[in-house]
Design a binder for these strands. Structure first.
Lengths: 220, 220
DNA sequence: CAGCGCCTGTCAGCAAATTGTCAGCTTCTC
DNA sequence: GAGAAGCTGACAATTTGCTGACAGGCGCTG
């Protein structure tokens, strides 16, 4: 993981670099505001440690610029002790955390670990099968980039099949999952739903295994 | 957005609740460690404010328990001033931020805003969805440049949906976060509020996903 | 304290989307 | 080619959500 440390006090900067390097990070140093902004904007950092008191360009502005141009890496801001107004400002500008100076290196490390842990923790909860994408977080289904408007049962169907893609799912199992305890369905309700569903997602996404059940993806 | 405040000093707790409620959050209070753990483990909170000195169960343990059982809501830890060892421990146990006591309510608010923003993946203090802008700092909502006069509950609604824009939010989740502990979950109060809200912000900002819930932004 | 306005929950009726059923049709298997 | 399995379109029943009216509650003001 590559980090940027923007801090004009060169002694502190070097110390921080030493500690962070020892902790296993690749560390870039910079001492001016301009340079900090430019690097943060053009390079890909896993995290930035930003001192607000940089010469050349105000730290808050740098931060806002980054956020405005869509850079979302975690930023830990170093502030003067006690100036909580400054902290509020920094946080509202898009900082993910701050640390008042002077600080214990151990605490700096703990915070950096926490921020990184957080920033990589956003796993995409989507399942893709051919041109179909099921996003379980937003409960959306997209085919060829086009979002679909599925009904609740339709969604349960695709979702279940997508979760078990490549496996032939018996109709009875589908029934169980889609309808739960509700055994009031005698007729061909499921088949009707599959038909409606196919109209929306395309007829070739779910294939029928006569006598066995349905499959999504693979195992043509 | 629904918050849990775990703080045994009832005066502080009440003050915090007042401030947070005024800021548009639904706030649940608890004074014991056991209860804090139980609620955090079973309820769905957007954020938890956790005092480490709770009676009955150690704050750090509570936090670890939550994390081990997969609860990922942001946790802001309140610590005694100066004990940075405790902070490091707290952060490594899974805290997202800490605040030394005593603190300014304003700073508490800024940090809470920041944590929530971060946990839902936004960088800025204002959230824009189409022609609608939610400023979490001033608690103002603007549509097409025109500021709106929203009631407290209406604001909670838009705010929550805006924070989770693009995601289909189930009605039950909305209820939880708008009403918190208050179990008035009977009739169609939520629907009524949505209707009133739509009259103010325009009927196309929040779209209904029949059977799923409501979404703000990128509809179908 | 009475009066007033605002906020919010409840209710009932309405509108519309969803889904089961049915009948007839197609496709597959042997 | 016969029978079984699955598909489809139409229709009706049901479920779900919307809306307007109304009333209780709360705070504010005179």
């Amino acid at each position: 993981m590559r980090l940027l440390v923007a801090e004009d006090d060169k002694r502190i900067a070097e110390d921080v670099r030493t500690v962070l390097t020892a902790a296993g990070y690749a560390v870039d140093l910079t001492h001016s505001g301009q340079d900090a902004w430019f690097r943060g904007d053009t390079e890909d950092y896993g995290l930035v440690v930003l001192d607000l008191g940089l010469p050349g360009m105000d730290g808050i502005s740098i931060l806002k610029q980054w956020r405005m141009s869509g850079r979302h890496m975690p930023v830990l801001v170093l502030t003067a002790r006690g100036s909580w107004a400054e902290r509020v400002e920094g946080i509202d500008a898009g900082a993910d955390d701050y640390l008042p100076k002077p600080f214990q290196f151990e605490e700096l490390l703990a915070r950096i670990r926490a921020l990184i842990r957080r920033s990589v923790g956003h796993g995409a909860a989507t399942i893709e099968v051919a041109s179909l994408v099921v996003d379980t977080r937003t409960m959306r289904v997209v085919v060829d980039g086009m979002p679909l408007n599925l009904t609740p049962f339709e969604y349960r169907l695709v979702s279940y099949l997508a979760h078990h893609r490549g496996r032939v799912v018996p109709a009875s199992e589908l029934q169980d999952h889609v309808y739960g305890d509700d055994f009031s369905r005698d007729g061909n309700a499921l088949e009707a739903m599959i038909a409606r569903l196919r109209k929306k997602i395309g007829s070739d996404v779910i294939s029928t295994r006569r006598g066995f059940g349905y499959v999504m993806g693979d195992s043509v």
